[in-house]
Design a protein around this nucleic acid. Sequence first.
DNA 1: ACCTGAACACCGTTCAAGT
DNA 2: ACCTGAACACCGTTCAAGT
Lengths: 193, 193
Amino acid sequence: VEASRTPGQRAGLTRARVLEAARELHAERGLEALTMRALAERLGVAPNALYSHVENKTALVDELLDDVLTQVEVPSVDTGDPAAALHSLLASTYRVLLAHPDLVPLYLARRGARGPNARQLGAVMLELLERGGRTGLSAREAMRVLIVYAIGFAAFTTDPGIEPEATEAPDLDELHANFESGLRWLLAGIARA
Amino acid sequence: VEASRTPGQRAGLTRARVLEAARELHAERGLEALTMRALAERLGVAPNALYSHVENKTALVDELLDDVLTQVEVPSVDTGDPAAALHSLLASTYRVLLAHPDLVPLYLARRGARGPNARQLGAVMLELLERGGRTGLSAREAMRVLIVYAIGFAAFTTDPGIEPEATEAPDLDELHANFESGLRWLLAGIARA
DNA sequence: ACCTGAACACCGTTCAAGT
DNA sequence: ACCTGAACACCGTTCAAGT
C-alpha cells in the first residue's frame, strides 16, 4: 500500500517469506484477520502479487496446518509398548491442536492436514498399530477412529458450543480428563477386538 | 429482483417462509449457494428485507441445523437395554448427518446444534447413560465423547480428506462398518469403567 | 412493522500491462 | 518471472427513507 514501487520493480518476495508473514499475521491477529489482502499489506505489495508465490489461499493455509504438526512429539516406533506410544502420540496431537485453537476449525473442515508431516504421523500410527496386532484394513480403521476422535475432541475443547444439556460450562481440566477417558476406551477396544 | 414493489408495499414474508425457502435453496443448490442475497432473490425481495424476519445468517442456519435433528429416531427411554438404545440413537444420528452431507461441516464448526431438538436428544442420552449406571459428571463426559465421535466420524465419512497414508479412497460400506467398530469400543468402555 | 434503494466495508481471484 | 492497477463478481449487514 506504499505507492513506492512501479510495475516491473521487484519486492523480493519468496514463498517462504509469504508463509512466514502468514504465520505472523495469524499469530498476532487470528484466523479471520488472515486474508490475502491483509497479508499483502503486511508485505507491502499489491494483493495479487501473492499469487506469484502461492497457488491460492487454500494452498497457503494447508501448508500452515501441516507445519503445526511438526510440534507433535513422535514416540519411538520400535521400542516399548505400542499401545502406550499410541496413547502418547495422540495426547501430544491433542495438546498441539489446543495450542492453536483457531486453526482447529480448519483441521476439522479439511479432515486433518495433507502435507508431509501429516503423512509421517499417519505412517507412525500405522506402524504402532501393526506392532499391536492390527494390520491392513483393520489398522486403517483404528487409525481413522483415533484421528477423528483427537481432532473432534480438540474442537470440542476449544469451544464446547452449546452443551445439549446446558449446565455450567465445563472447565479445561475436566475436558482434558474427558479426552483421556475416551482415548483409553478407544485404545482398549482397539487392543481387544 | 422484480422492480414491482415500491417502498411500503408488503411482500408477505414470514420467518417460516424464509426458513422454508432457505431449506429449498440449500436442498437444490447446496450450502455455498445459500447466501442471503440468493435467498432474497428466490423470495422476490431485496436482500435486506430478510432482516425483518431473521436476526442474521447465523441464526437462520442454526435453525436449519436443529430442524434436521427431528429426523433422528429416538429410542424409548425406559424399556430395553440402555446400551442398545444408546447405540441405535447414535447410529441414527450418524445416518441423519450423512443424509445432509454439506451441513456436516456446519455441525462441526458449531460443535453440534443448539436448538430444542438438540437439547432433547441430549436429555435422552443422559437418561440412557444414567440407566446404564453413569450419573452426573461421568454421564456428561460419556455423552461428550459420543457426540464428538458421531459428528466427527460423519464428517470424515462425507469427505475423508486426505488419508495420511493415501492408498485408495475407502468406500462407504467400509466407513459405515468403521463407524460401528469405534462406536462399539466407546460403548464398551463406557459400560465398563 | 415491513419493505426498498443505496451504500459500507469487505472478500479471493483474474486480466492486461509494465520491466 | 515478478510485480502493479484495475476490475470482476461476489459477500453480510446497516442506514435512511417510504407507507
